[in-house]
Design a protein around this nucleic acid. Structure first.
Length: 476
RNA sequence: GCCGGGGUGGCCGACCGGUUAGGCGGUGGCCUGCAGAGCCGCUUUAAAUGGGUUCAACUCCCAUCCCCGGCUCCA
């Protein structure tokens, strides 16, 4: 069974075959760190994280790089407003960003977070090559890329050059063509700047990614990801820079794009100021809930964000954890061996893989995982499970859940209770024996306030810890 | 305007030329003193609109309408 991915370059699904055997070099466009990241950013990063997890599951050796843009016009402007150094502002927000990525369980799968400011010499190098090869030109300290010199300029975006000539913002009159883009911007009034062959200035936006990847991966690599809004001009320009500079084609074999997250019918974005931060949502919902929410739709599809919709993945996740708990309880009694479980697990794994291999159909894959939980509960309620099978079922649930980054929390049953709670439970059992229901209910309430939820079953009383509604995220 | 992507039952959301998708929510029942958890039902084939192709279309083709993205910083 082979993995198929939708490649934006050819606009259809294609068998995934990396350039060098099982090695996958992968890059995803990261944050410009002048503010906190929002749940739209999280969508892209979580969905690519699921993709990475699946690639690793298939046995690929993935090297995943995600850049951090710390040199940027808006960042400079924000720093000026706040009266701080741009690089210290970006440092502040990139620390916070990495904490978000850690909370979302994304950070662990990223091998490197290179920052723009660490690649200035490499960028200058690449720009110099482009100038030498005649793709770029210097106009009084501003270096532009002459788009007409690169034949395949529109191959990714599929826009026509005629269309590109239309513009809504008056182009810089010094440019040869209105659609040429900046590689190097001259320092205007003492802002963040570095020395270069064209004088003091700073790099344009697009050059950092190609300077980084050429340095880290070489002239070609396997997979480049980002949100669909980046297809033009960002990724279009990356191809123009890299392929012109290195002479190697294709720069990237597979281009994958996520659909954007909307809120109230509009794209969530920092500049529209209609965003909800990751920190904000994580103060109310567990990271796994948010991850499951993103997995509930296909990565290429846009999503309409409404916080109420998080109740659904929250309920589903609760069901899955209860399933794990139920299996664990069932394993402590002796049930009959059945072929049923083995077949079920094999079937689920196969279907899950089929779904994921079809361009990462996470929603369909999840329905198979969820179906397994349903079946497991049925078997448990029929008392037909034994210890070994219970272990295997739990393992499969956790393994498949792990692809989405869920079901990673411990499930404990019958753990040590504080003496106080133990005594209260005994008292309540006494009360129940005597059918003193009111007293029993009062005791149950009291135990709950101490953090334990009681469940009466035919096999005696069970308890479980009451979780906080959300995992607190750091706020500084 | 041009270039992409999309419109599926109360909501979310898949696949596919012939399937009961699935989930959430709602609701009835089993089990319970109650609660919790789980289980069993029900929530009737829903597919933007109008044509066409076909034995058969939600699925393919053509129009029309609507939504989102890109064309400007943006995950």
């Amino acid at each position: 069974m082979t993995l198929k991915v939708f490649n934006t370059l050819i606009r259809r699904k294609q068998t995934f075959e990396p350039m060098h055997g099982k090695q996958v070099k992968m890059f995803v466009c990261g944050q410009t760190t002048y503010d906190d990241a929002h749940v739209g950013h999280a969508k892209t990063y979580v969905q690519f994280d699921i993709i990475v997890r699946w690639l690793k599951h298939l046995g690929y050796d993935v090297y995943y790089v995600q850049n951090i843009t710390d040199v940027d016009d808006k960042l400079i402007k924000r720093a000026q407003e706040k009266g701080v150094e741009p690089l210290s502002l970006s440092k502040h927000y990139s620390r916070r960003f990495l904490k978000d990525m850690e909370a979302l369980k994304v950070k662990r799968n990223v091998d490197l977070f290179p920052a723009t400011s660490d690649y200035i010499p490499q960028m200058i190098d690449q720009i110099r090559i482009l100038v030498e090869k005649g793709y770029a030109y210097d106009v009084m300290g501003n270096v532009y890329y002459d788009v007409t010199k690169f034949k395949d300029y529109t191959k990714l975006s599929r826009m026509s050059i005629d269309e590109l000539k239309k513009h809504r913002i008056e182009p810089d009159p010094r440019k040869r063509n209105s659609f040429d883009f900046a590689l190097w911007k001259r320092e205007e009034r003492g802002e963040l700047a570095w020395d270069s062959p064209w004088g003091k200035g700073r790099p344009g936006w697009h050059i950092e990614d190609t300077a980084m990847t050429v340095t880290i991966f070489g002239p070609q690599y396997d997979l480049h990801g980002g949100a669909s809004e980046l297809i033009f001009p960002h990724h279009t320009n990356e191809i123009a820079q890299a392929e012109a500079a290195t002479g190697k084609k294709p720069f990237v074999k597979y281009w994958l794009h996520t659909g954007v997250l909307n809120i109230k019918g509009e794209k969530m974005s920092k500049s529209l100021k209609n965003f909800v931060t990751i920190k904000d949502v994580l103060s109310r919902y567990q990271p796994e809930v948010l991850r499951l929410y993103y997995a509930s739709t296909h990565y290429r599809k846009p999503m309409e964000f409404d916080e109420e919709d998080l109740e659904r993945p929250k309920a589903e996740l609760g069901y899955l954890y209860n399933t794990l708990r139920n299996i664990k309880h069932a394993a402590s009694r002796t049930g009959k061996t059945s072929e049923e479980v083995e077949t079920l697990l094999a079937k689920t794994e196969r279907r899950f893989a089929e779904a994921m291999n079809n361009d990462f159909n996470t929603h369909l894959a999840f329905t198979h995982l969820y179906g397994l939980a349903r079946e497991a509960n049925k078997i448990v309620s029929k008392q037909k499970i034994n210890w070994e099978q219970a272990e295997k079922a739990t393992q499969t649930l956790r393994e498949l859940g792990g692809i989405f980054g869920i079901l990673e929390e411990e499930v404990t049953i019958g753990e040590e209770l504080p003496e106080e709670v133990e005594k209260l439970i005994e008292q309540r059992e006494e009360a129940r024996k005597g059918k003193h229901w009111e007293a029993a209910d009062r005791l149950r309430q009291k135990i709950k306030s101490l953090g334990y939820l009681l469940e009466d079953t035919s096999e005696g009383v069970r308890w479980r810890k009451v979780k906080n509604e959300a995992t607190r995220s750091e706020t500084s």
